[in-house]
């Protein structure tokens, strides 16, 4: 009576060569082939993509908000990883 058994898929699209696949939304489908086809029909009606990934939503393992401190904060104390950390003479500042 429903589409309860249809699975939720997340859709990622590469807009053109050289770009990353980008998450665009989700849809319902019975299997991954059907999900690919529906992704084509739903998310590329204006020729927005040259490559599509679909992933079963339940297969996505997401970090939790509560993990944030241990997960990301240790990465945030290394300003020397960013180009702007280095003040260089005006002449070479486009480096």
């Amino acid at each position: 009576m429903s589409q309860s058994n249809m699975k939720l898929y997340e859709v990622f699209i590469r807009g053109r060569r050289g770009l990353d696949h980008k998450h665009v939304g989700s849809l319902h489908a019975e299997d991954s082939e059907q999900a690919l086809e529906y992704a084509r029909d739903v998310y590329t009606r204006r020729g927005e993509g040259i490559s599509i990934w679909v992933v079963n939503s339940s297969d996505i393992c997401a970090s939790q908000e509560s993990d944030c401190e241990s997960f990301y904060d240790p990465l945030d104390d290394k300003p020397y990883r960013h180009a702007t950390h280095y003040q260089l003479p005006e002449k070479v500042n486009n480096m």
């Binding site: 589409q3 319902h28 529906y38 029909d41």
Partner: peptide
């Protein structure tokens, strides 16, 4: 029969 198919048939 469901929204995804509606879009696909319209294409």
């Amino acid at each position: 029969p469901f929204l995804e198919e509606d879009l696909a048939m319209t294409n």
